[in-house]
Computed example of a mutant assay.
Amino acid sequence: MQTTSKIILGLCAILLFNCKSAKTVRGGDANFNLSSKQVIKENAKQVAAFKTLQSKLKITYTQKGKSQTHTVNFRTKKDEAIWINAPFSVIRALVTPQKVSFYNKLDNTYFDGDYKYLSDLLGTELDFNKVQNLLLGETLYHLNASDYTTSVDNEAYIIQPKNQRALFEIFFLLNPSNFKVKSQQISQPKEFRHLQIDYLKYQHVDSQILPELIKVIAVESNNEMVVELEMKNVSLNEELRFPFKIPSGFEEIEL
């Protein structure tokens, strides 16, 4: 499969037009005096609320010392679909709660299957909700005060399970000024796997706080993959289409 194809499909694993409506979020007054229950409640208040979202998405992909940058059209219908389209529709992907679909006109191939490849790529089990949460700056796992504890370190709230599993460690870092996710990290020490998602910049769009710059680092043994996602020209709640049809005569690929 072409390298470009891997980049687009990899985005689905980890993986917003009105420039004047988007403003970078600036830091406010930090509050470090809240309980775990209060912090989790404040984070829940910041969950993005919209029906549809559209953007230009700049993807920079680095692995084994080589980097490539591509800009694609990105659309999502909340809780239903994530759609990616490269220039001239050369590569197109559609992710739904049921499956991941993808085709590549550069080599006349397509993929139409489950989330296993995406999960293997990032070293943690993925589904539609986790992919959506990753792209929107939400925690991959649902937070509740009965299962998680909160501490403060290095100007951030650190949220982690009260009972960390020896084989699977989870940490969420929240910004104390707006309670959005600064970083989320999942480690499998015995498997030498580590997934880190850093939200380097947020932006305001129509009263919503959405990621502007995301950096995803996936490490397995001595192999590291880094994907940077920059969301530009974001618009919300427009009438959008999500066209996707695998062209006839294309060859199915197994990943």
Rank of each mutant, 00 (worst) to 15 (best):
F128E: 07
T139K: 05
L15P: 08
K116Q: 08
I159D: 00
E125M: 04
N233C: 14
E155A: 15
N175P: 13
S221M: 14
F88W: 12
F192T: 08
N237Y: 07
D29F: 10
E239N: 15
V72Y: 02
Q46L: 05
P87M: 07
D147N: 15
F244M: 14
E230M: 12
V181N: 07
S55D: 11
P176W: 05
A22W: 06
H142D: 12
S221V: 11
T71V: 15
F171E: 10
I82D: 03
A156Y: 09
N85V: 15
K66D: 03
E155R: 15
L9W: 06
A30V: 09
F74W: 08
A48M: 04
L213T: 05
K162F: 01
I246N: 10
G123S: 07
N178R: 13
E224N: 14
C19F: 08
W83Y: 10
E220P: 00
T52M: 11
N85T: 11
S177N: 14
I253Y: 10
Q185R: 14
E220Y: 03
I59N: 02
S89L: 08
Q184G: 02
K37C: 01
S146G: 11
I14G: 01
E80D: 11
G249T: 12
K190C: 00
V226Q: 05
I14E: 06
T76Y: 09
L34C: 11
E224G: 04
D79N: 10
L140C: 07
